[in-house]
Nucleic acid binder design. Structure first.
Lengths: 191, 191
DNA sequence: GTAATTTATTTCTGTACAAGAATTAGAAAC
DNA sequence: GTTTCTAATTCTTGTACAGAAATAAATTAC
């Protein structure tokens, strides 16, 4: 009696790939162990699922490099390249593109609440970014400095508030008007 | 002439052990790659504090002094006015109180809109600020990380959203709950 | 003598791979 | 037809290992 074994094909079978593939890396022992712990507790995964991006805790010693972990979560689609970016971050490097043309101002009004600009906030402003339509700008209008959204077309120019109780302002030829720069970042302190 | 090869001992030779041993671990690809990058740049020095986590030690010192204006209403000179400069400011100095206990996270949800925290914003978090009542904190609840306002009294503890369409969460004794730090600053980028 | 080179030794490091886990289709049982 | 079982298939994962790197003694060159 011959032992014949017939091979049945089962195309399509097999373990499915992970949502996020892994890679073996060699790291300093304490760090490696911490990461393994997190993994065991499944915390490494849940950080991807949570409302916050996954983050990395770290310590910066002789400099102002502060740890940073970013992750954009979109369940399902594997996004092109790495949407993840972990590591350290230097606030100056990160927030200031042009050292020579950047300055700070502090906000005093509430007119831009809807875009997250509150009284007391500090704005980072770059003079060399073109003040195109829709940008938040620091504008001087008849001697007053304001922060507003720029709305312009061929023949009109508005400074718009982002707060319903404040009116938009149309800039006319007679106004003394100038743009100081484009707001790139809002720094909002929580007391 | 005989070919005699005498074996000479060389005790004490050999590569010296690393200061900190390493270990191979398998991690999610993006995280692994970033860690490898840091390692290549030699930014992954080991100085580990037993506490929560992984400590990165970074190198390059950075301090940029950027002009700073206190916003005020006044007769405007329109030109890029360096004469109004009230001083300079270093973002790192200004925003980071405790280097060793500060970290960054990026926000992905909308639940804190009302306090100016929007998706995509970056938060500066300090572990060593006491999470007292009313503070905005980064909390881990049953494996998920969230940013919420802390409301606590003698016998109850709530994590409150600042967005009406999100519910508040009462933390019970059975929940796995921990506080990672208090949010000191929101960094909101305007595209 | 000493500087430069070679050799012996030790440890480190990235990665390949075997073992295991997950998943599915087909066969067997009902 | 449905359920259960099993083998086939595919992907993951921890770790062993070969080669690289580092180091100091021995040897050679000058």
């Amino acid at each position: 009696m011959t032992e014949l074994r017939i091979r049945k094909r089962k195309p399509g079978a097999g373990r499915k790939p992970n949502e996020v593939p892994t890679k073996a890396v060699r790291l300093p022992l304490p760090l490696a162990n911490k990461l393994l712990d997190l993994k065991k507790q499944n915390k490494l995964k849940s950080d991807y699922d949570g409302e916050l991006g996954q983050f990395f805790l770290a310590k910066a010693l002789s400099s102002k490099q502060i740890p940073f972990f970013e992750s954009r979560i979109q369940a399902g689609l594997p996004s092109p390249a790495d949407d993840l970016c972990e590591g350290t971050l230097d606030l100056n490097e990160y927030l200031i593109y042009n050292e020579g043309t950047t300055f700070f101002v502090r906000v005093t009004g509430e007119s831009m609440k809807k875009v997250g600009i509150f009284p007391g906030d500090m704005l980072i402003v770059d003079k060399h970014i073109p003040p195109s339509n829709g940008k938040i700008v620091i504008a001087g209008l008849n001697g007053e400095l304001t922060v507003k959204r720029l709305e312009k077309n061929e023949d009109s120019l508005f400074l718009c508030s982002e707060n319903d109780i404040y009116p938009d302002i149309q800039v006319s030829k007679d106004d003394e008007f100038s743009i100081w720069g484009v707001v790139t970042t809002v720094i909002h302190s929580l007391a």
